[in-house]
């Protein structure tokens, strides 16, 4: 992406963001009417002018089937993670062992890094401690590990999370580049 296009995107009006904020405004009022729509759009415009955000690069496409898979797996993981923490919390007389693991990701994009980090924080074995943006690396705290095998399993889980995310929303080129890097790291 050329710098001029980037600058224009920064200065230009971010319509999807404004529409998203308008929807939130309408939902907050709990009533859909002309006043809410126009008022929300005005507030969104002012907010985006006063607090401009760097443009988010998203050239991807949402693939319905992998996306459903991503969401379904996330819900399943959230439930398992909660059950795991509940079990540890209710097991008396034993302290859980933990680990801090390093997970080098394969995708090179702030957006996918952020999404993977967010998703990983809510699934088993995930409390984000540190992010290295340059190396696309996450450092996570994992609860309830007993062995090195558990550590590797937690790492593999985060990488699978990333793969599901990429398959669900990345563009064709990004997915191909991601797959090439993932292959390379396996070899």
């Amino acid at each position: 992406m050329s710098p001029t296009r980037r600058q224009r995107a920064r200065l230009g009006f971010q319509l999807p963001m404004a529409l998203g904020l308008t929807v939130i405004w309408i939902l907050l009022w709990g009533h859909f009417g002309l006043l809410e729509v126009v008022g929300g759009f005005l507030v969104a415009t002012v907010v985006l002018r006063v607090f401009p955000l760097p443009p988010v690069q998203f050239d991807g496409t949402i693939r319905p089937l992998p996306f459903v898979k991503l969401v379904a797996q996330f819900v399943y993981d959230l439930v398992t993670a909660s059950i795991q923490v509940v079990r540890i919390a209710l097991t008396f007389g034993k302290q859980p062992m933990n680990a801090i693991i390093k997970v080098p990701l394969h995708a090179r994009s702030d957006l996918y890094l952020t999404f993977t980090a967010e998703l990983s924080s809510l699934v088993p074995g995930g409390l984000l401690l540190e992010v290295s943006r340059e190396e696309s690396t996450l450092y996570l705290h994992v609860i309830g590990v007993r062995s090195e095998a558990d550590v590797d399993a937690a790492r593999a889980r985060v990488l699978r999370q990333e793969r599901r995310l990429m398959e669900a929303i990345a563009s064709k080129d990004e997915l191909a580049a991601y797959r090439a890097r993932a292959q390379g790291s396996l070899a």
Binding site: V85, V86, I88, A89, P96, N98, L122, L127
Partner: peptide, 24 residues
């Protein structure tokens, strides 16, 4: 159970686990 975890867990990180997953 998230609240129990907050009280019972030994350090801050494990407590944050309790505050994120079952709580959410």
């Amino acid at each position: 159970t998230a609240a129990i975890g907050l009280v019972r867990f030994p350090d801050l990180f494990t407590r944050m686990h309790a505050a994120t997953k079952p709580q959410v």
